[in-house]
Amino acid sequence: MTDHHTYGTSTHTAGELVRLVSDRLGLVFTERDSNYRGVYHLAGSPSGRVEIQPNPIPGDDGEDDLYALEYPEAQVLLLTTTPTADSALQARLGSIEGLIHLNHETVWTATEQPPG
């Protein structure tokens, strides 16, 4: 099982959110530059990974494209991936003012069975 959560904000810039999440979770983010995603920030730990991604990313045509089309109102996205549900992580992120939980998805591998 892999647990994914998506958060969004239009209150904070990516840099501000990196500082807030670093302080709240004690994570160290590294800046990454991708042709596909633009500049984003990544923090990994034994319990998963947290990414902070601007939603508008530079497009090939000189216009910005959205990383997540389904959330046009979110200027910055925060993406979490953990091997199991992590309610403590979700509670700490939920306490950040201006950060809104947008989506949750649990992915099961072919050899796993979902509960029920």
Rank of each mutant, 00 (worst) to 15 (best):
residue 1 M to G: 08
residue 1 M to P: 11
residue 2 T to G: 01
residue 3 D to G: 04
residue 6 T to R: 14
residue 7 Y to S: 05
residue 8 G to W: 04
residue 9 T to W: 01
residue 9 T to C: 05
residue 11 T to H: 08
residue 12 H to T: 00
residue 14 A to P: 03
residue 17 L to F: 09
residue 17 L to Y: 02
residue 18 V to N: 10
residue 19 R to A: 15
residue 19 R to F: 06
residue 20 L to G: 01
residue 20 L to T: 04
residue 20 L to P: 04
residue 20 L to H: 03
residue 22 S to G: 15
residue 22 S to F: 00
residue 23 D to V: 06
residue 26 G to K: 06
residue 27 L to D: 01
residue 28 V to S: 15
residue 29 F to R: 07
residue 30 T to L: 02
residue 31 E to C: 03
residue 32 R to I: 05
residue 32 R to N: 11
residue 33 D to S: 13
residue 33 D to P: 01
residue 34 S to F: 05
residue 36 Y to T: 07
residue 37 R to K: 09
residue 37 R to E: 13
residue 38 G to R: 00
residue 38 G to H: 00
residue 38 G to C: 03
residue 39 V to C: 07
residue 42 L to M: 12
residue 43 A to M: 10
residue 43 A to R: 06
residue 43 A to T: 02
residue 44 G to H: 05
residue 45 S to C: 10
residue 47 S to N: 13
residue 47 S to D: 06
residue 49 R to D: 00
residue 49 R to F: 00
residue 49 R to I: 01
residue 51 E to A: 11
residue 53 Q to R: 14
residue 54 P to Y: 08
residue 55 N to K: 04
residue 55 N to M: 00
residue 56 P to Q: 10
residue 57 I to H: 14
residue 58 P to I: 02
residue 58 P to H: 08
residue 58 P to Q: 13
residue 58 P to K: 09
residue 59 G to D: 13
residue 59 G to Y: 15
residue 60 D to T: 11
residue 61 D to E: 12
residue 61 D to Y: 12
residue 61 D to A: 09
residue 62 G to H: 08
residue 62 G to W: 09
residue 62 G to L: 06
residue 63 E to Q: 11
residue 63 E to T: 07
residue 64 D to C: 02
residue 64 D to R: 04
residue 65 D to Y: 10
residue 65 D to M: 08
residue 66 L to H: 10
residue 66 L to I: 11
residue 67 Y to R: 10
residue 68 A to S: 12
residue 69 L to I: 02
residue 70 E to G: 09
residue 71 Y to R: 07
residue 71 Y to L: 03
residue 71 Y to D: 10
residue 72 P to M: 06
residue 74 A to W: 05
residue 74 A to I: 01
residue 74 A to Q: 05
residue 75 Q to H: 12
residue 75 Q to V: 02
residue 75 Q to N: 14
residue 76 V to T: 15
residue 76 V to L: 05
residue 76 V to K: 01
residue 77 L to E: 02
residue 78 L to Y: 05
residue 79 L to K: 07
residue 79 L to T: 06
residue 79 L to I: 09
residue 80 T to N: 03
residue 84 T to L: 13
residue 85 A to P: 07
residue 85 A to D: 14
residue 87 S to Y: 01
residue 88 A to T: 10
residue 88 A to F: 00
residue 89 L to Q: 05
residue 89 L to D: 04
residue 90 Q to I: 13
residue 90 Q to G: 08
residue 91 A to E: 15
residue 92 R to F: 06
residue 92 R to S: 09
residue 93 L to H: 01
residue 95 S to T: 07
residue 96 I to W: 07
residue 97 E to G: 03
residue 99 L to V: 06
residue 99 L to F: 09
residue 99 L to I: 08
residue 99 L to W: 02
residue 102 L to R: 15
residue 106 T to P: 04
residue 107 V to I: 15
residue 107 V to K: 14
residue 108 W to H: 09
residue 109 T to R: 15
residue 111 T to M: 12
residue 112 E to W: 05
residue 112 E to P: 04
residue 113 Q to I: 05
residue 113 Q to N: 13
residue 113 Q to G: 07
residue 113 Q to R: 12
residue 116 G to T: 10
residue 116 G to Q: 09
residue 116 G to N: 11
